[in-house]
Design a protein around this nucleic acid. Structure first.
Lengths: 150, 150
DNA sequence: CTCCTTACTGAAAAGGGTTTTCACTTTCAG
DNA sequence: CTGAAAGTGAAAACCCTTTTCAGTAAGGAG
């Protein structure tokens, strides 16, 4: 699922759903932002394009867009949910601890680790959530403190 | 930092903090549970040992114990924060999608992945959060639906 | 085009988890 | 013993999120 209006529209239609003006505004707001946004930030951004948009609708839209895979939930710092546009495939995110920018990367060969973990714990691993933190090219030159792992 | 009362006590003292009866109860409650617990669950469990414990204190204690590294925050499903005792070293967790049990594993050679991600994104990777989902030995025999990645 | 059904919407209220406030208690050093 | 600082519980305040509800768009059937 790429982040394209017509594709999103088709994905919605396949479930009997519609790409309304409000949903379009939410979609655009997420696409335009360089970093992950909380629902409230999405709301603020989307209202510039669709001022009568309600926060309720933002929440509902985020849920719908998540369901069809048009966006990705990211674990923010402090509060839980932030949203970024989903890339084309199963991807993971790097969050910049300097500026909050979120970038996706596709390198995802977890087999070695999941196999080792399965061996060590006896679990049958079915899924993984991986999120990296670092400093983007712009912030990397400054010497910010890296955050602790959590 | 292991999950031992005297060590925790020492770690607290190093910061001018104390291991009170209430904090001890919270610590024990987390140590005793086989799986991750929300603050409210910790509160309920700890009150059996210390009935006059307040929920406020649980939140404050969880924060303190997190700061000194005595426990680990886990991203629960739906709401964000759950807590498990921290193992001896930098570890990661596997959460059973069948019963909620949490197990730690130490296999953590992320270098291949972080290097690849750094190359792909231009970030300098400083940290990572990894959490696996799977079925523990007990639940693995049943055929539950694996969860989707998030 | 009109009717009808269904998706969709915003405002307000409700809900729930977390944090702050405040007065009081405990602990420890001197 | 005394003073200072850490710690505490109850209640209130504060979010953020979900639900409710009445009303509005939108698309298909006729």
């Amino acid at each position: 699922m790429s982040f394209d209006a017509s594709e999103v529209s088709a994905a919605l239609a396949a479930r009997g759903l519609r790409l309304t003006r409000q949903r379009r505004a939410v979609l655009d707001a997420i696409a335009a932002a360089p970093c992950s946004q909380s629902p409230l930030q999405v709301y603020d951004a989307a209202r510039e394009q669709c001022p009568e948009l309600g926060l309720t609708t933002v929440y509902r839209t985020l849920e719908v867009l998540d369901e069809i895979g048009a966006l990705r939930r990211v674990h923010g710092d402090g509060h839980c949910e932030s949203f970024v546009p989903a890339g084309a495939e199963h991807g993971h995110t790097v969050v910049c601890s300097g500026c909050g920018r979120v970038t996706e990367f596709t390198a995802c060969d977890m087999r070695g680790i999941t196999d080792a973990a399965a061996l060590e714990t006896g679990y049958r691993i079915t899924d993984h959530f991986l999120q990296l933190t670092g400093l983007c090219a712009g912030c990397g030159t400054r010497d910010d403190q890296p955050r602790r792992d959590r």
